[in-house]
C-alpha cells in the first residue's frame, strides 16, 4: 500500500518506507522492521511498587497488528529490546502470547538480541540473532559508533522537539544520513532521547535528517537549529524524561 504522503528514504542504496506507526518497511525484501518494543516494560516496575497500567504490551501488539495488516510483510525483524527484560516473556498473559505467536507464524520472524533481552524467549517462534545482514543493509540493536554503512539500528529511542509560533511538540522520529538509519522506539511506554543528545549526533559526522511521526504520516522536519550562533555548537544533552507540555 502506498499513498501520496508516504516518505521513502534511501539507506545505503536501499529504498525504505517510513511508516507513521514507527516501523520501517523495505518493499524490495518485503521486510518490516520494528525497534525497541519493550514488551512488559510496565510490569517490570511492579516489583518496585509502581503499578503502571498493565496494558502496554497489548497496546504495542495492537499497533504491530496494524502495521502487519498494512504491509503484509513476508519477513519481520524486531531490532532488539523487544522484551523489556529476560523474564518479560513469562509475564505475558495467554491472550498476548497467543497473538504474538500468531504474528510470528507464517512469516520469517527474527528477534535481534538487545541489551534488555540478550536472550529473547524462543517459545513464541521465530529466530534469534545478534545481527542480520541482508542486501546492502545490516540490522543490529545498538548502533556501531562510526562508519557502519548500511546499518539499521534501534536502541536510542530518538525523539525530536519541534517549536513553531510558541507551540511545541515532541515526537518520536527516524534519524538517517542516507548511509545508516536509527528507528524510533515502538513500545507503548518507551520514552524518547532528544536528537540533540551526543549519543545521536556522534553517529552522524556530516549531519542527519529527522523524520517525525505524525498521526497519519511522517514529516521530514530536518535538523536545523532555530538560530545559528557560534556560541557553543556542541550538542545538548536533554534529560531523558519526556516533557508534559502546557
Amino acid at each position: 500500500m502506498t499513498r501520496g504522503d508516504d516518505i521513502h528514504i534511501d539507506v545505503n542504496g536501499e529504498r525504505l518506507l517510513l511508516d507513521p506507526l514507527g516501523a520501517a518497511y523495505w518493499p524490495a525484501e518485503q521486510t518490516l522492521v520494528f525497534a525497541d518494543l519493550h514488551f512488559e516494560k510496565g510490569s517490570s516496575y511492579a516489583r518496585g511498587g509502581q503499578f503502571l497500567p498493565p496494558y502496554d504490551t497489548r497496546a504495542t501488539i495492537r499497533r504491530i497488528a496494524a502495521a502487519l495488516s498494512r504491509h503484509q510483510p513476508g519477513r519481520v525483524i524486531a531490532l532488539g529490546d523487544s522484551f523489556h527484560d529476560n523474564w518479560a516473556g513469562d509475564r505475558l498473559d495467554g491472550e498476548e502470547s497467543a497473538l504474538l505467536a500468531a504474528f510470528v507464524r507464517g512469516r520469517d520472524w527474527i528477534w535481534v538480541e538487545g541489551n534488555h533481552d540478550p536472550e529473547p524467549p524462543t517459545w513464541l517462534g521465530g529466530m534469534v540473532s545478534a545481527e542480520v545482514a541482508l542486501g546492502g543493509l545490516v540490522f543490529r540493536h545498538e548502533p556501531a559508533v562510526l562508519g557502519a554503512r548500511g546499518e539499521v539500528a534501534g536502541h536510542l529511542h530518538p525523539a525530536v522537539s519541534v517549536h513553531r509560533r510558541g507551540i511545541g511538540t515532541r515526537r518520536r522520529c527516524f534519524v538517517s544520513d542516507g548511509t545508516r538509519l536509527v528507528l524510533p522506539a515502538f513500545g507503548a511506554y518507551t520514552g524518547g532521547l532528544d536528537t540533540r543528545d551526543r549519543a545521536v549526533t556522534s553517529l552522524f559526522e556530516g549531519g542527519f535528517s529527522t523524520y517525525a511521526l505524525g498521526r497519519e504520516r511522517v514529516y521530514a522536519v530536518g535538523h536545523a537549529p532555530r538560530r545559528k550562533k557560534n556560541v557553543d555548537i556542541q550538542p545538548m544533552a536533554m534529560p531523558k524524561s519526556t516533557v508534559t507540555r502546557p
Binding site: 519541534v162 517549536h163 511545541g168 511538540t169 517525525a212 505524525g214 514529516y219 521530514a220 536545523a224
Partner: peptide, 12 residues
C-alpha cells in the same frame, strides 16, 4: 500540533 510538524517540513 500536526500543523507545527507540517510547517516545520514546509520550512525545510
Amino acid at each position: 500540533r500536526e500543523d507545527i510538524l507540517r510547517e516545520a517540513e514546509e520550512a525545510l
